[in-house]
């Protein structure tokens, strides 16, 4: 671990300035990912600006029926919020399926969005990785790829984004609010994370020193149903092989609205717009769901160890849509990671 300067920020502008003025400064939230990286040498910042005391820990209603989630709201607190449980079950379920109870107690909303890939080569400084050290090569491409991308990858990087929460937010059309050196802006969640392309070192569109202050959830009609399903290699405390966040609205047996996002398949939460197009206006049948899944996954490019992700993603999406459209009421988030 490199020595670093530690600062505790008391307001947003101060935090932004403290990071913006040094190229090697970073924000410290819950630290559940960053502190690991400090120990492993994956990142070597010269300054840590602790933002956990900033007043960004509220969940508040927005005019028009939406909800604003402060960037410092802990994952466990957010999952337990009555408004999230009742109106955004997909988000509560996604949060509860992530990490472990202990980690969720520390992890923040903003930090969750900014967690980095768990690609084993990214996390091991003795192996090449374009994301960690641009230009050094991608060790994963011809390596162990069980957990890697099948959609949207590049020859430079085949890593996947590890967050569950972000997948639900992608399906919810959430908006990330930031405060940076150049002022404030609102970034749609689906545009917040990047595909790797030739710059895999950049996970998001954030500028240096730009701080996430909140995530806004749009209002949802009462008729909407949503769910999150995560498939992984053990029953809890594992990253998704494939996950699906889905919201649907039905009218007379037809799907009037659908929003779908996949986790575990790409460098970012993968909003499945091709699948949504197939679903909108179609009858809620197994055949429709199958067609929707195929439409999204037709362009999948599996690697040596992860061809199974394609049928797995297809079957998981079909299963989630089947359950959602057979239900009569809203789903409740599960308390625990039970099978």
């Amino acid at each position: 671990m490199n020595p670093f300067e530690y600062r505790r920020a008391t307001d947003v502008a101060e935090a932004v300035a403290a990071v913006a003025e040094r190229p090697d400064a970073v924000f410290l939230g819950g630290g559940t990912n960053l502190v690991d990286h400090l120990k492993l040498g994956v990142t070597r910042p010269g300054r840590l600006v602790d933002i956990t005391r900033l007043p960004l820990d509220r969940v508040e209603p927005l005019p028009g029926g939406g909800v604003r989630v402060g960037a410092n709201v802990r994952n466990s607190d957010l999952a337990a919020e009555p408004v999230i449980r009742s109106r955004y079950p997909v988000l509560a379920q996604a949060l509860l399926s992530g990490a472990s109870g202990q980690l969720r107690n520390l992890a923040t909303t903003g930090g969750n969005l900014l967690q980095r890939t768990r690609c084993v080569y990214f996390q091991d400084i003795t192996t090449p990785c374009n994301k960690r050290m641009p230009g050094s090569g991608c060790a994963a491409l011809d390596g162990y790829t069980r957990h890697h991308a099948v959609l949207g990858a590049s020859p430079q990087c085949v890593a996947v984004h590890p967050s569950d929460m972000a997948v639900a937010l992608a399906a919810l059309d959430a908006v990330v609010r930031t405060h940076g050196p150049a002022g404030q802006r609102a970034i749609p969640l689906v545009e917040f994370h990047r595909l790797p392309g030739a710059q895999p070192e950049r996970d998001t569109v954030l500028d240096h020193g730009e701080l996430i202050t909140a995530v806004d959830l749009p209002a949802v009609p009462a008729t909407r149903r949503s769910a999150y399903r995560k498939v992984r290699d053990r029953a809890s405390y594992a990253f998704a092989l494939v996950s699906v966040a889905a919201e649907v609205e039905l009218r007379d047996g037809e799907i009037s609205q659908a929003r779908i996002a996949f986790g575990g398949l790409a460098h970012k939460p993968w909003r499945a717009q091709r699948a949504e197009q197939v679903l909108r206006g179609a009858p809620a049948t197994a055949a429709t769901f199958q067609r929707a899944a195929e439409a999204e996954l037709v362009g999948a490019q599996p690697l040596a160890d992860n061809a199974f992700k394609v049928p797995l993603a297809r079957n998981t999406l079909v299963s989630v849509l089947t359950e959602l459209t057979e239900l009569t009421g809203a789903t409740e988030p599960t308390q625990e990671d039970t099978p």
Partner: peptide, 8 residues
Amino acid sequence: YHIAANAD
């Protein structure tokens, strides 16, 4: 390196 968790 996965070891069975309680939920398993």
